[in-house]
Design a protein around this nucleic acid. Structure first.
Lengths: 167, 167
DNA sequence: TTAAACTTTCAAAAATAAATGAAAGATATT
DNA sequence: AATATCTTTCATTTATTTTTGAAAGTTTAA
């Protein structure tokens, strides 16, 4: 496979993966492009590479910066802004996990807690509802914590040990 | 909060969470409804509860059964089909993880491997591309394995120990 | 202060994904 | 074998999400 073909394939694949996980395609593609660029890239070049409009590029770059996984860079003597991606994958995973937890899981947990705390009457239906949503609350809470911990454990000997044992 | 309000809120929230994670809203809502129903539910009742069409109900139930997290049930003397959800959350998590890994992560891994194996010339750009996609391949592979292992470790003493220590 | 170079915003358009519902397909019952 | 009950399919419609691009907004420099 030739380099440009490979690069393109990578960007497309990363974009598709993103959209399956609730991140929009262009956002993931921009991120992919930046990840494999050794140098910071201008907005103009991003638009050109991905064949997207100025507005689209601008909005998605902003979103990526909000997530903390893309940085603006200023080059002296240049008026334009350049962009680079977080390239440390452990750091990337931590930031994505934190962001999604904050935006999606935490609010869902709040609702789960609320609805699991209603006063159930004696009916089977209501008792079952409370039992099931309570379990779900515990479960999601546990998963959320694990996500946090797992992302932190990359440079942690106990984590590595755990991985070794579990493999 | 009153029971019906709580039930509705739960279904809506679970649906929204689903769509943020690449599972369509109705599919997640049907699953939510079945999770909190102590008894198996007919298609008619699902349509009525969620205010959706017959076709929609049918297709999403099929998808849920393909994922292995909803089961058909036949009641003797009844012509209609009834549906129940997998209620064991550990089992549920395992099945979802397996399915998404199979459908999305494995194919992405294949591409990552491919593109990271191109012959890079001496240019910085190509060398960086190979280095970065190789790292990504290792990382995603590791994460995918961890997902597998994590879902299996619920009734596993070592896993529990790990959780305890890491908390 | 003005102009040039660049970025952001957002209403409208386009693309994509999901839902509908009527017809076709099953399956059981008489 | 005809009928009744229920489910699935899929072309069309509807809803949602994403993208565009032109106008407004910024920043820098002369």
């Amino acid at each position: 496979m030739e380099f440009n073909e490979a690069k393109n394939k990578f960007i497309q694949t990363w974009g598709a993966l993103g959209s399956q996980w609730g991140i929009n395609k262009t956002m993931a593609q921009i991120h992919a492009l930046l990840m494999v660029s050794p140098e910071a890239v201008s907005m103009e070049d991003i638009m050109e590479s991905l064949q997207i409009s100025r507005g689209n590029a601008s909005m998605n770059l902003r979103a990526l910066m909000d997530w903390g996984i893309v940085y603006k860079e200023y080059k002296s003597g240049e008026r334009r802004e350049f962009f680079t991606a977080e390239k440390d994958l452990d750091e990337l995973a931590v930031k994505i996990a934190r962001e999604r937890s904050k935006r999606e899981i935490k609010p869902a947990l709040k609702v789960l807690k609320e609805v699991s705390m209603i006063e159930a009457d004696t009916s089977l239906e209501e008792k079952h509802f409370v039992a099931q949503t309570s379990k779900l609350y515990d479960f999601v809470l546990r998963a959320d914590n694990m996500l946090d911990k797992a992302t932190e454990m990359n440079d942690n000997w106990l984590g590595r040990l755990f991985l070794k044992i579990m493999k």
